[in-house]
Design a protein around this nucleic acid. Structure first.
Lengths: 154, 154
DNA sequence: CCGCTCCGCTTGCAGGAGCTAGCACCCGGG
DNA sequence: CCCGGGTGCTAGCTCCTGCAAGCGGAGCGG
């Protein structure tokens, strides 16, 4: 078994190289990449966006979320207003947080606009310094990538 | 040319596999459904508790929450399972956060880490939803690991 | 061409959410 | 004694959620 330090170090390297490679390979195709970040007017639109972004079929998501496929169809088209449990199940099926869906559904207030994530990670005493380094590294990579793929979003 | 969805998906997959090496089954904790089942009465008990603590009558809370008093009565006794909107209204009437009620209702998981960091990541609009998910998973893994390695810190 | 499988959508129904109306009880004042 | 207003709970209803069944269309091997 590795020591935690070794494992973190290795992981930083692996994650960085992985992200770099992927980001590089995508550099050419980011011209038309607005899709994922669009602010859906309704929950259904947002769900469908996320589902399409994940390349998951309606039936597939319905199965992993534990709901019927016709109902999910209606939810996505805004014909039905799903309950909180269903919403949570769908969030799990989409591997996104339930809070996000609740915010989209308008039943949770959207949190403060732009807190400093870096500062939060740095000052989090539930993390070791190495773990902070990994998270910050990954975070910055993601932010860079997000800026590249949707420059219009501020 | 790659679509945005493919790009996101590929990257999540690669990073996730890296995380999986470290985190083992942690990635599944998002997909698994822990809290949704077998709730019901606890929310009602909690609501009644809060209402009594605030010295508010059932009808009074019902009025401020915008629901009928019989229905609130049934909700408090666990006979009815209120929707997310009703829950949010009741939370507003009780002057408590909706998150608290959702956690009581079992439709929001209580996060293990520092809430500030979690909130910062979650509300960071420089990240896509999937990147948030990856960061949060990794973060929680680290927090758990940190706790395991230094249990004395409390 | 057919048959098979997948896709998403439409239909019809069971059951529960949420409301209005009304119940029984307790208290203070005429 | 008998009101008027307070508490919480019950009965019956309407409407909508959420599902099972079935639809037409698109791809693919025979």
């Amino acid at each position: 078994m590795q020591t935690p330090g070794e494992f973190v170090r290795e992981q930083v390297t692996t994650v960085r190289s992985t992200v770099d490679r992927v980001a590089g390979s995508v550099a050419d195709s980011v011209a038309d990449a607005p899709g994922v970040s669009a602010v859906g007017s309704s929950v259904g639109d947002f769900i469908r966006e996320q589902r399409n972004a994940a390349r998951v079929s309606l039936r597939e998501l319905a199965r992993t979320a534990g709901v019927s496929n016709p109902y999910l169809s209606q939810v996505e088209r805004g014909l039905r207003k799903p309950s909180a449990e269903i919403l949570a199940s769908i969030a799990r099926g989409l591997k996104i947080s339930a809070e996000t869906l609740y915010e989209q559904a308008g039943i949770l207030d959207r949190r403060s606009g732009n807190p400093d994530t870096v500062a939060a990670i740095r000052s989090d005493d539930a993390l070791s310094e190495r773990h902070k380094a990994v998270l910050l590294e990954l975070y910055e990579t993601y932010v860079r990538e997000h800026r590249a793929s949707s420059p219009a979003a501020s």
